[in-house]
Amino acid sequence: MTLSKIWVYAEATDGNVSNTTLELLTKARELASTVEAVFGGDGASVAATLGEYGATTVHATGDLGGVLQGVPVAAAIAAAVAGGAAPDAILFGTSYDGRDVAGRLSVALDRTVITNNVDLEEDGGALVCTEPVFGGATLVRTKFTGGGPNIVLVRPKSFAAEPAGGAPATVEALAVPDTGAAGAARVTNRFVEERSGPSLDDAAIVVSGGRGLGESDKFQMVEDLAKLLGAAPGASRAIVDAGWVPYSYQVGQTGKVVKPTVYIAAGISGATQHMVGMKGSKNIIAVNKDAEAPIFGVADLGIIGDVHKVLPKLIEALKARG
């Protein structure tokens, strides 16, 4: 038994559809006989990719003129649902805009949102969501009991993205009702922070630093090691909050979820916040001077030692190998 229809909230930057969107489309194909996308922008720019991953239709608002997605997209979906177009479920990635739209929509429809999910299954025509708590040590499965559509937020990298080879999705206009003062928040400028090396999303190796580095200058060791390994540098929330590195480096619950082949945690104790963002890595190497640090609970190789001694020696050893 499957659900009959799922909508996936699609996100894209300059026409490039986000990985999370493609992951959700892939999973949705398994759960429902019809998969469609909702997009707060120009549908033609994303129809080919969305179709390739299984969306037959993209309901698109057209250009929003810089208005933040939450208010207009949620209002448009709510109006479509009221007009009889309701899918069984609407899937959102846990992203800045995904959470905004899902939150607004839950109020408009007076429906709960089940958040932070890493797995979805269908049981007797209802959607069951799996959410990890306590840093992933415990899994909680929650079933929707109210009427649809079910609103679901899913964490990035929960599913593999696999193309289905579908034709471009048909673009259908999704009308945005007048949202009055609520829709007044508008983007006036966009800034891109430059960062070197591969992105955290795609890197096969990630080297992250935390508070155990002691001071912001020492993050250079993480950058150096990452460069030698062709890895992406990352960081724990503690040092992002402290202003050592930009937020774009952050791995964790807030920040990026990464699943590289190798994750090296340097001076990171392993707060819940951080662990949920990296626990899915294939191999985890941790260096920390505190033997009781929770990070050692997930490490495949753990070195109880001082990062200020281990990292420079490791960098030297790798350099010597050329």
Binding site: L68, A185, T188, N189, R190, F191, V192, E193, S248
Partner: peptide, 8 residues
């Protein structure tokens, strides 16, 4: 994801 937006 890429940096920041100025919003008013």
């Amino acid at each position: 994801d890429a940096g920041y937006d100025e919003v008013e």
